[in-house]
Write a protein that binds this DNA or RNA. Sequence first.
DNA 1: AATGCTTACGGGTCACGTAATGATT
DNA 2: AATCATTACGTGACCCGTAAGCATT
Lengths: 92, 92
Amino acid sequence: MELREIEIFLTLAEELHFGRTAERLHVSVSRVSQSIRKQERAVGAPLFARTSRKVELTAVGEVLRTGLRPAYEGIGTAVAAARPRRDAWPAR
Amino acid sequence: MELREIEIFLTLAEELHFGRTAERLHVSVSRVSQSIRKQERAVGAPLFARTSRKVELTAVGEVLRTGLRPAYEGIGTAVAAARPRRDAWPAR
DNA sequence: AATGCTTACGGGTCACGTAATGATT
DNA sequence: AATCATTACGTGACCCGTAAGCATT
């Protein structure tokens, strides 16, 4: 489970639509599908219930989203906090 | 910046020794070096000061570690919380 | 037939190990 | 010379897109 995949999961959890998710992240729909599938295998349960006209979070997916979102954002802010205004490489 | 790399960073920040870090994570020393280098490029500043006999966190590295550790652990617990006791796949 | 998700397939990229190199004590 | 980190280099793995397949309306 890598950050890029978590981003895909969280975006789909928000959009509830593979096409829009793919568009927002500038990847193919196939990629979104494969990524979700992979994460479902990793977790051991479906994260979304796909009917033909609807995509919705399962109970497990909901739990995952709730726990993951703040942690994911925490990583972003941690990196942003560390990044210096201007590159700060000492002479090497 | 992917989770696997963050794990390497956090482990090195704890061990302050490339060899032990590599051993703990079951990867090569080279991998640790390459990974850290990559993250330093991403952040825009050195994360560790390596002298021949010592490895220590820079100020930037310290900030990153402080922010990253709780977020990283949060991801682990989020996944653990979601994972069902027994696989719960509906009939497909 | 149109819309939306999944599966098959292939190629380009890069993760990661081995080996060689450099630096310090 | 021993110890520790970096760099060079090659290969296997996997990411990810295109295209075909399925299902539903």
